[in-house]
């Protein structure tokens, strides 16, 4: 046997610390931003504000976790933003126009939302259309459906009880935050410890090798789009409940934040690499930045520019880390 290159695990403590930091750049970025904000903005460092931030990012995090699985499998789901609008007006409309009871409207909303993912998945897997194009098409179409159904106007006047999903509390903790934590935990266990989760990594890492290992790649690819739109639907219900109305434009600009959170969290756009924790941190960074910009009364137009810079930065990190990984 000739020489084999071996990466020796470092016993050196300093090296171990360096490695930990290298693997958790994004966590350090979050800590850094939080420290900066806490240092310079007095109103930032209150418990109320912290809970506020968490509540504000909860829907985004849930939706981004859905997107995470799609990106992990090597795809992309552009239809998430429109789905948020559509599900919001659908659930609101079912209760307001049709007078459906709350539970029925919610279940129907979840089913319809997931159906969007099924359509995306079928088009991508069996129609062999590229994910980008497929979901671009459904994004546009769903937006139309949302406008048609709502007549282009916000729907409000939903029965009481609906506001619980966006404004309610469990043991003093806002319900959306509880939901976010639970979703993140389930997603973590699913992606790291279940067979299907592991298969998603494999399909994203090398689809043809995964197929040759007996993984039903089509099934896996179909599933991730359903997961994505299911979680998007859950997030959409939280949002509609918080604003207590179904607005056909509410998801218009969400897609940028969703993708930014996923990429910022270290998910490789070419698939196969990513962590649930990273996505949560990515979403938290966006939340902290948005919150502090509001507290500092930064001009909203400038806020857009800053968001753009963050997205570019996220992609830059993606490219850099990819080069490092062989």
């Amino acid at each position: 046997m000739s020489t084999t290159t071996i990466d020796k695990p470092s016993k050196n403590k300093l090296e171990a610390v360096r490695r930990f930091l290298g693997n958790n750049v994004i966590l350090l970025v979050l800590i850094g931003i939080v420290a900066l904000c806490a240092g310079f903005i007095p109103t930032f460092r209150t418990l109320t504000n912290a809970i506020n931030i968490l509540r504000q990012v909860s829907a985004l995090t849930i939706i981004a976790l859905g997107q995470y699985f799609v990106v992990l499998s090597g795809g992309i789901d552009l239809s998430a933003g429109s789905t948020v609008s559509f599900v919001g007006v659908l659930v609101a409309g079912l209760m307001y126009f049709q007078g459906w009871p709350l539970l029925a409207a919610l279940i129907f909303g979840l089913v319809m939302g997931s159906l969007i993912g099924l359509v995306n998945g079928v088009l991508i897997v069996y129609g062999e259309i590229q994910p980008f194009i497929t979901t671009l098409a459904t994004m546009i179409a769903i937006k139309g459906v949302a406008f048609l159904y709502s007549g282009g106007k916000p729907i409000s006047g939903m029965p009481g009880g609906f506001e619980f999903f966006g404004r309610g509390h469990i043991w003093g903790i806002p319900f959306p935050v509880v939901l976010m934590v639970l979703t993140a935990l389930v997603c973590y266990v699913f992606s790291e410890h279940s067979v299907t989760g592991r298969n998603i990594f494999s399909v994203g890492g090398n689809e043809s090798a995964a197929r040759l290992c007996g993984i039903r790649t089509k099934k896996v690819k179909l599933l991730v789009y359903v997961i994505s739109s299911f979680l998007t639907t859950v997030g959409a219900i939280v949002i509609a409940s918080r604003i207590m109305s179904g607005q056909p434009t509410v998801g218009d600009y969400m897609l940028f934040d969703i993708l930014t959170a996923v990429i910022l969290g270290g998910t490789s756009l070419s698939g196969g690499v990513g962590r649930v924790g990273g996505v949560v941190i990515g979403a938290l960074i966006l939340g902290v930045v948005a919150n502090s910009m509001v507290l500092l009364r930064i001009n909203p137009y400038w806020q857009w520019i800053i968001r753009g810079i963050i997205l570019a930065l996220a992609v830059f990190i993606d490219a850099k880390t990819k080069r490092r990984a062989v």
Binding site: S202, G205, N206, A209, L212, C213, S268, G272, V273, A325
Partner: peptide, 19 residues
């Protein structure tokens, strides 16, 4: 291109068939 998933570990590449 067909045998290995480069982004994964030795463990993940070997156990992939018996998950």
């Amino acid at each position: 291109n067909e045998g290995l998933i480069m982004s994964e570990t030795v463990r993940e590449n070997i156990s992939i068939t018996i998950l």
